[in-house]
Amino acid sequence: MLITTENLVKKYMMGESEIRALDGVSVSIAEGEMTAVVGASGSGKSTLMNMLGCLDKPDSGEYFLNGENVSRLPKDRLAGIRNRYIGFIFQSFNLLPRMSALENVELPMQYAGKRDARGVAERALETVGLAGRMRHEPGKMSGGERQRVAVARALVNDPALILADEPTGNLDSKTGDEIMALLESLNAQGRTIVIVTHDADIAARCGRSIRMKDGRVVS
């Protein structure tokens, strides 16, 4: 199993009352799977994704990534894991302004201390079909193009796991389809992909769905 969680709990205090964003989540995802996470708004999907992406730590429970318990690692180790093993794709693209597409895609490799980042970034942008837009800044690109840049950025360090939180949420259905096709082709190459979505069609295109409700996995 690439991902195994045991009884993950994440609590938030809202004034007097306690919200359990995650209330004992145990899931397993095998390598090469393409999994959808679905559920109503506020059911804890994003919280779970952040946990799986090592951006957040659980209040209790364990998270094994590729067999290693990462739930209580120090911050710098987690940064290294995010950098090398995980690629993120967000609903709002989250590209850096004032940097070209190419520079955005190079960044994860620079944090990894890799050389020839330029060449790898160029190839990644070609893969997502942006060969002609490399020098553009995100502000001058369409939503679909921006999300492609984000996909390229998620790819460059050759991560085992790609996490996408509503990647098509800000796109029209045609562009959304294109991004999905891109993710499907990555999955076909053997990459494990987890997608949060509200779209039943997209969920249907994934091999498996995890349904959440009130911080629990219901199916």
């Binding site: 951006l55 710098d76 940064a79 950098n83 993120f88 989250n94 302004p97 960044l107 944090y111």
Partner: peptide, 16 residues
């Protein structure tokens, strides 16, 4: 702030 979050998500350490 948002930029800092993005950089950390893609692997920047505190010292970066």
């Amino acid at each position: 702030t948002k930029e800092i979050g993005i950089r950390k998500a893609i692997g920047a350490r505190d010292r970066d």
